[in-house]
Amino acid sequence: MRGEAEMRLTSCVLLCVLLSLSQAVRPGQDVRCGACRALVDEMEFAISQIDPKKMIQTGSFRINPDGSQSIREVPLARSEGNLLELMESVCERMADYGEHTDSSTNRKSYLRIKSRNGESMDLSQAALDSRITSSLKFACETIVEQHEDELIEFFSHEMENVKDKLCSKRTDLCDHALKIPHDEL
C-alpha cells in the first residue's frame, strides 16, 4: 500500500510540475508576441510621421569605369539608416503599454495606455505595472537584437499585415497570431 501511495504522490507532483512549466512557457510567448506586435505598431507609426517626399541617396558613391555612379534615391522614412535609428529607441516606447488578459482564454495582450495625440484613453481593461513594461521592453530589445535584418527587410518596403508576416510567419514569436484581430497587440 505504501509503495502505491508514494507512486501516486510522485505522479501527482510530476504532473503538477509539468503543468506549471507549460503555464510558465505561455506568458513568455505572450510577452514576446506582444512585444513584437507593439514594436511593429510603433515602427509603422514612426515611419508614418516622416514626410514621404523626403528622399535620401543610397548606394555607392564610387565612379564606375563607364563614368556613372550606382546611386539611387529612396524615401528617407524607409531607408536603412533611418530604420536603424528608429530601432534604437523603439523599445523605450514599451512603457506606453499595459497588459490585458482575456477572461475567456486567459491569453495576455498588450494595449497602448498613452495616447499619441493627447486624447484620454479607456484604461479600465489594462493592468499597469512596471514589471509588465520592463518585461515588454526586454522582449522588444531581444527581438530587435536577434531579428534586425528581418525588421529592416520588412520595414524598408511598404507591406500589409506586417504584424502577422513578421511576428508569426517569419520569426515564430506568435504561434497564435492568425487568431488575433489585426488591430490588437
Rank of each mutant, 00 (worst) to 15 (best):
S104C: 08
L39G: 01
L21Q: 09
L76S: 11
K114W: 01
E153A: 14
L39P: 07
P52C: 03
D164Y: 13
D96K: 11
A139L: 14
L9I: 10
I50Y: 05
E145T: 05
S104K: 11
E148F: 09
K53Q: 06
M7H: 03
E42H: 07
A139V: 14
H100C: 04
E119Q: 05
H176N: 14
S48A: 15
V90E: 09
R32T: 12
S89N: 12
V74Q: 14
L86W: 09
L9C: 09
D129R: 00
G3N: 07
E184K: 12
H176K: 14
E160T: 07
C174N: 02
R37Y: 12
N117A: 07
P65H: 05
N64Y: 02
C16W: 06
S104I: 13
K163W: 02
S109T: 14
L166N: 05
I71H: 01
S156P: 00
G34M: 12
F61R: 06
P52I: 00
G34H: 08
R2P: 01
N82L: 13
I132T: 14
L84R: 11
A5M: 00
I71M: 07
R170V: 00
R78K: 04
A95N: 04
A127K: 13
E44W: 02
D122C: 14
A46V: 05
T133Q: 15
A95M: 03
